[in-house]
């Protein structure tokens, strides 16, 4: 008998079950297949997309992120450049292979330099695309991979995240529906990062300090169309 066998034997003894009980097995299988939603907050339930956009913006700003809105995708390079200039940051971005980001008209901002790949120690600004944003708490949902390497979310001191308005949803459950749509049922990328503002800590004397280990600042660009 292995350690695993003994642990499962003790669990089953404690529960008074055998592990071959078909009713229990069916109940567990049904639960997983159903993706059943529980209570979701009124602050987003039945609200319009525009209300979700306003909530998202409000929560993100409350969580110390900067939020800018782009009327259309072609405005994104200009807004990114403006944010970097206004914040007195280098005009150099590290970005993954995301097709949407690659198609943006970066040539309109010649001062911006885009470097591609995962983030390294010296990278100061990272650019990512979120696959969804959850209005109920101002939370961005990023999926790792070659398109949006996970290190870009954490290593650079500044993180710029682009989210299309169509990716703005009410609840976490809505975001999971998008994840299942993209990766398939029961499948996940290596990492899903839910991010609600820049890194912070309260570990020294209970005082809130931004930029503990991850980004010190975050800029979210919401693309209207």
């Amino acid at each position: 008998m292995t350690g695993r066998d003994r642990i499962f034997a003790k669990i089953r003894a404690g529960l008074g079950v055998t592990g071959h009980d078909q009713d229990r097995q069916a109940a567990a299988a049904r639960r997983i297949a159903a993706s059943r939603r529980h209570l979701t907050p009124d602050r987003v339930a039945g609200k319009s997309h525009e209300q979700h956009m306003q909530l998202l913006r409000g929560f993100l700003e409350g969580q110390c992120a900067t939020v800018v809105e782009a009327a259309s995708a072609k405005d994104v390079p200009r807004l990114v450049a403006k944010y970097l200039r206004d914040t007195n940051l280098p005009m150099r971005l590290k970005v993954g292979a995301d097709g949407y980001l690659a198609r943006l008209p970066w040539s309109t901002e010649p001062a911006l330099e885009l470097r591609h790949g995962r983030a390294e120690a010296g990278d100061e600004v990272g650019l990512s695309r979120a696959m969804a944003a959850v209005a109920e708490t101002g939370t961005l949902v990023l999926a790792s991979g070659a398109d949006n390497p996970v290190t870009i979310n954490f290593l650079p001191e500044t993180h710029i995240v682009v989210i299309e308005a169509s990716g703005v949803v009410g609840t976490y459950e809505d975001a999971w529906a998008r994840v299942r749509e993209r990766f398939g049922a029961r499948a996940m990328p290596r990492t899903i990062n839910m991010i609600s503002g820049p890194s912070r800590t309260g570990d020294i004397g209970g005082k809130l300090v931004m930029g503990a280990h991850g980004p010190r600042r975050m800029c979210v660009v919401i693309v209207r169309a």
Partner: peptide
């Protein structure tokens, strides 16, 4: 069991712990 189940619990976790709406980073690793 599911992502929906954990979402409900996460609505309680940060609020009970630090009073945040949501923790800054919630990471799902697979």
């Amino acid at each position: 069991p599911t992502l929906e189940d954990v979402s409900s619990i996460l609505r309680l976790l940060a609020r009970s712990a630090t009073g945040q709406e949501f923790s800054t980073y919630t990471t799902f690793s697979t």
